[in-house]
């Protein structure tokens, strides 16, 4: 593979990786925001893992 082809491959690969990472980051932020809930039930016991 010639150096110019390698350079194109590297830049295109980098752009694809960047796009994938950006998409996953947005996905993660949405998942985090969607998980914010308010406890609705009263319990007489406070559990360590609640």
């Amino acid at each position: 593979m010639g150096e110019s082809n390698k350079k194109v491959l590297y830049n295109v690969g980098g752009a694809v990786v960047g796009a994938v990472l950006a998409t996953v980051a947005i996905f993660g932020l949405i998942a985090q925001q969607g998980s914010v809930t308010q406890p609705q039930k009263f319990s007489s016991t406070i559990n360590y893992n609640q």
Partner: peptide, 12 residues
């Protein structure tokens, strides 16, 4: 860009 994977996978 590659180095950013820890933040990307744990944005919360």
């Amino acid at each position: 860009v590659v180095a950013s994977w820890p933040v990307v996978t744990l944005t919360g």
